[in-house]
Design a protein around this nucleic acid. Structure first.
Lengths: 242, 242
DNA sequence: GGTTTCTGTTGACGCGGATCAATTCCTGCG
DNA sequence: CGCAGGAATTGATCCGCGTCAACAGAAACC
């Protein structure tokens, strides 16, 4: 991979910024920085996740998608800051795509360095396992959503997730910029894009949601939204920026 | 937890048996046995996964289900021998149920002992991460199945999975005993049980499948089954007993 | 062995959401 | 500023699969 001067400069700024972040938030991870290469990703930038590498999301959003480019595509997982991404097994690697859905900072480590860091430090090991466990819980909840919820309930769940990760409370209502396009949300929820559009319009008509631009959303009534989604409590518990 | 004499006896036999297994298959895990308590589980035995414990499946099958008992239940994950199960986050724990779907041997460790074992041994750490990564890949494939496949394709995928884990090849065809009931399969595939029954009958009528009893299945034509399922290659790659 | 109860099968029917097509709305670009 | 191309909306239509109900078969219990 070649690195331009501009990219190198961005990496530098990213590195200093995230170091401060780490010191206050996750001291365990700070011990990984020594072996990590910091990368800054543009919006919609596809990422080549090489075998035997581990990525750690520092800011932004990374989407993991599965399937051929075209109609039958699925957004399998959405990664938020703090998430740990290991290269998929070889048998799946060819069908997986990773994309940064927003400007993101990530650390990249070799699997060896990552393993060594875990083996050498009990607190790092404990932190990593706990984090992976949280990600597993989110993925399981995702399955539960797809399996048990109607399309409207799924959309409500997604809005709660986005609000939890990206939202800023503003006197009872929560605003955020949705980083996923309509098509991408549909791929995440296993929904037809047209159906999704209808449901969003319905939410706006009902007054639980407002759109100031195509990507700027405001949840006007969180409780009404929660009432639309059976497992809202679990969704909000697992998807809060904290 | 009280342990009867009979249970203690079973634990003893289980322990010696699995130790031999470990020595030949997964030397990394053998180093965990010292801190593990071996348990034998009956078919359909529910498991209480206490906070801060880690379970390792040695034989049999453990199902993780989510949702209230009753209609809207989802089988979120199926664990096979070698799998590592960490207690779910508190916010999800109340809605999760773990059940042994077949006679199973499992190891139980405290999270502390597990973390310590990883931190003390680089090979254990590497093994655990690789295993967790395989489980993540399976879960992602599960999502992809639910999102992208029709009900018939999903059933085909499940049969390929079961054949891979439990099947014994027998001259071109593969036989196995299905540990899940019709209802449970339906919960795993996010399918109506009646619809599942229809699809199974269709497979039998087409000749790709044969039933010698309620639970004894034989896939008569693996290739025909693979033709029914778009991502059959990935399914078989990730679900093979090896 | 016979009754009860649980599990699976099959048909008829209806609904939720996918599909297709037409239109409108953004956004970038000359 | 106006045009072009893509993204989102919305209506009309269709079909896969869920739902309900009636029945059949297996296991369980006395």
């Amino acid at each position: 991979m070649t690195i331009t001067v501009a990219q190198a400069a961005m990496r530098q700024t990213a590195k200093t910024a995230t170091l401060a972040l780490v010191a206050s938030e996750t001291p365990e991870l700070a011990r990984l920085t020594a072996h990590a290469q910091t990368l800054r990703l543009r919006r919609r930038q596809p990422i080549a996740i090489a075998p035997d590498t581990v990525w750690i999301v520092r800011s932004g959003i990374i989407a993991a998608e599965h399937g051929a480019t075209g109609s039958e595509r699925t957004m399998v997982e959405v990664h938020y800051p703090g998430d740990i991404i290991a290269a998929p097994p070889a048998s799946l690697a060819a069908m997986m795509t990773y994309t940064s859905m927003a400007p993101s900072d990530v650390w990249r480590l070799t699997a060896n360095a990552f393993n060594a860091a875990m083996a050498g430090d009990a607190e790092v090991a404990s932190y990593v396992l706990q984090r992976l466990n949280l990600q597993r819980a989110r993925t399981q909840l995702h399955i539960s959503m797809l399996a048990a919820l109607s399309s409207e309930q799924r959309v409500a769940a997604l809005l709660l997730q986005a609000a939890g990760h990206l939202g800023t409370a503003h006197g009872g209502s929560v605003s955020f910029e949705m980083p996923l396009s309509r098509t991408e949300v549909a791929e995440y929820l296993a929904l037809n894009a047209d159906t999704l559009s209808r449901i969003m319009s319905r939410f706006v008509r009902e007054g639980v949601l407002a759109r100031s631009s195509r990507t700027q959303l405001t949840v006007r009534d969180i409780d009404a939204l929660k009432a639309h989604c059976p497992m809202s409590d679990a969704v909000m518990a697992l998807h809060s920026a904290r």
